[in-house]
Design a protein around this nucleic acid. Structure first.
Length: 88
DNA sequence: AAAATGACGAACC
DNA sequence: AGGTTCGCCATTT
């Protein structure tokens, strides 16, 4: 899931930036690290401490990388499923 | 009130 | 392919 994708899924197509803001501000432990950029790279500047943290967390979730690019982000407990569940 | 700012994204050079 | 500009919209200056 990218920020724009989350926004769309929530019914706010132009709110990608608000999504990132919300994830950052939220006091509850949201799985912010599962949200990436639309180009499938991580959300932060490569090498930054936040970048390394996100990379580490994602690896623990079983997400694989091709260098800086993410091979496949969607895991069995991807963000959309956590937030909105299997709907049915 | 006006301008700058973002864990964004797409459109243009 | 890679760098710059532009649209987005709530917050903060």
């Amino acid at each position: 899931m990218g920020y724009g994708e989350v926004a769309r899924a929530a019914g706010f197509p132009r709110y990608s930036r608000m999504v990132s803001a919300a994830l950052g501000r939220s006091p509850e432990p949201l799985p912010w690290f599962r949200v990436v950029r639309s180009n499938r790279t991580l959300a932060f500047e490569v090498g930054s401490s936040s970048y390394r943290e996100q990379a580490q967390l994602l690896k623990e979730e079983g997400v694989r990388f091709d260098g800086v690019k993410i091979i496949e982000l969607e895991t069995e407990n991807s963000l959309d499923r956590i937030l909105w569940g299997p709907q049915d």
